[in-house]
Design a protein around this nucleic acid. Structure first.
Lengths: 359, 359
DNA sequence: TTGAAAGCGCTAACAG
DNA sequence: CTGTTAGCGCTTTCAA
């Protein structure tokens, strides 16, 4: 590997001068600069980022912890993050934890060792992993994304969707379209997102004075299988809600399959909604609520990079993106009943917002 | 940040001894080891990986270049790669190029600067990016994955699917099920994968003595939109093949939507197949050919890690995984005609293979 | 405007 | 068994 020394020797200057040229410090004579640039080109010199990191103790790398990049929610988020970070010359290190705390901890140790500048945590559970503290103890900024732990300690920040609003938007949409009896399949209670969406479902129902049947609230685990099984069980037990709302699109996919198997047509016989706006919802015309994962990743990138450059955390500890309704065909244009309540702050029309917002 | 020196001072030993303990060099007295371990624990010392890298000029990091992690093909592949690499203490750096050569080149410069140990290139076009040579010039091993450039230079390796076979398997499957007139939508000619699948389609048809209608071979670009548009155009022009085979699942998804719009039911009116085994194919029951992206990423990890440890490249320059037929519902159980040709080496029954194979 | 030299945290060769 | 020390390639004073 060719080093600065090689360049210096070739150009007839010292390493200090070469360093100045490489870093665009404008104190070098044009003559020297020319010669040095020439030597760099000839030798195909590339600065050694490692040495630089060692000196400056900044690696310009950001790690992102996700459960499993294969989960359709993450790629968009990671893309947004990578996009922003890369444009600001930060690299993104990807770490899949597979929901295994031990694996997560090993990753964290490794990341500390590698002195990443920051980490974006997409794996937080309601039962908080105490290992995150190690990060703080070592002075590594970190940011929770999408899922948040129950409490945010000092210097902890969160960016995610307004999941409660997402739930409300869905219920509201069904209501406006004339649906009154709505069943709900939740996600696992260990994810804040599930809890918030559940809250949104409940509060939406209450605001609209719609009854919540206990037996119509099913506990799923966010997988397609769960959506399938629970829907089958619900319908086979003789229940027949007008609409079925799932906490995420994957479960809605499963529900769709189950309904098809039973012979129920969406939306003719029953309406279906999900949350996440999985692009493949297009295949079955699933109406969903977009929680904008690309923007979320991007927002995380912005927050973290600014933090790193300014040396201090964001102003707000919690940032939330406003969800958007994505209408496709799984909810009928109008199910008959006329809507009774029409004004409802901020939900009627969901504006398209570009930047992250704080609740 | 606490350093080795701090640990040494606290434990009352020299840095060399601490280093020995940290690296498990078995020449340290149990007594010293105990004290040092204690100091490490108390101070929460973590070795500085940067310093280590600088010394040993190995970063234990592997970069992966993909077009866009959002493309449903990649996450599985990247997951396989990350999984394997991480288990061997290599980190994975993710770089999205968005098919922009300039962005790719900047990434490559950056990766050289950062002295990644190796790079896995998932972005090769038939029109080769000359910038890959920089990597070789700098002594950084790299491996093409999934897509391959037309020629492999010395020290260049490739791992991917046997795409030609995938095409043949699909045609063969349709044939066995009684379909005789088959239309095909190709992917872009800049990807080796498209070309190979096209070859597979043609050779499959020839082997089965099926006619290839020129007007039934459409040029797509691997997007859902292309599948949709081309299918609409094909059918609306009055053509009516018994089966439609798409070079990838995304286009098959688009085709499905178009057929539904026209009022053609799959598989009753027309059979549909794709390649890739996108998990969401489940939603429409799409029969596909799995090219095993997880295994592909994993195989790349194996190849690269072994290369790095042994210091020399793989034995074979090309490794290909054997595709697998994934039957769902988009091809009828039997379309009427009895199969005439049944023996066909290696295609009749597609075995499930765990490890990568060389063609 | 340029150069000499210290030092980032670690490893490894060598000495004790 | 343990300590001293010379770098790894770079940035950054400080002097010239």
């Amino acid at each position: 590997m060719v080093t600065m020394k090689d360049v210096a020797r070739r150009a007839g200057f010292s390493v200090a001068t070469v360093s100045a040229v490489v870093n665009n410090v404008p104190i070098v004579s044009p003559e020297a600069k020319r010669k040095i640039l020439k030597a760099i080109e000839e030798l195909q010199y590339r600065p050694n980022h490692i040495a630089r990191s060692l000196k400056g103790s900044k690696t310009r790398s950001i790690a992102v912890l996700v459960r499993d990049i294969t989960n359709p929610f993450y790629p968009g988020m990671v893309f947004g993050l990578e996009d922003y970070c890369w444009k600001h010359h930060y690299q993104v290190i990807l770490a899949n934890t597979e929901n295994d705390p031990q694996r997560e901890n090993m990753h964290i140790d490794e990341l500390i060792s590698r002195r990443v500048d920051a980490v974006v945590i997409g794996t937080a559970l309601t039962n908080r992993n105490p290992y995150y503290d190690k990060l703080r103890e070592h002075g590594i900024p970190y940011l929770f994304i999408n899922r948040r732990p129950p409490q945010l300690h000092p210097n902890e920040y969160y960016v995610g969707a307004n999941n409660k609003l997402a739930g409300e938007i869905a219920v509201r949409h069904l209501y406006v379209r004339g649906y009154r009896s709505i069943a709900f399949i939740t996600g696992p209670a260990e994810y804040s997102t599930s809890l918030e969406r559940y809250d949104g479902f409940i509060s939406g129902m209450r605001k609209l004075r719609l009854p919540v049947e206990d037996s119509w609230v099913l506990k799923g685990d966010n997988t397609m299988d769960a959506g399938y099984d629970l829907t089958l069980r619900l319908i086979r037990s003789g229940q027949r809600p007008e609409a079925l709302f799932c906490s995420n699109d994957l479960m809605a996919f499963g529900a769709y399959l189950a309904l098809a198997e039973i012979g129920l047509e969406v939306p003719r016989d029953i309406a279906l909604m999900g949350i996440d706006n999985n692009p493949n919802g297009l295949l079955i015309g699933l109406t969903s609520v977009d929680i904008r994962n690309y923007d979320m990743g991007r927002a995380a990138g912005e927050l973290i990079v600014r933090w790193l450059e300014k040396g201090q955390g964001p102003d707000k500890t919690v940032s939330r993106l406003r969800p958007r309704l994505v209408e496709r065909r799984s909810v009928r244009a109008n199910a008959g009943t006329e809507p009774e309540i029409c004004e409802w702050s901020g939900v009627g029309q969901v504006p398209i917002v570009k930047r992250s917002q704080t609740v």
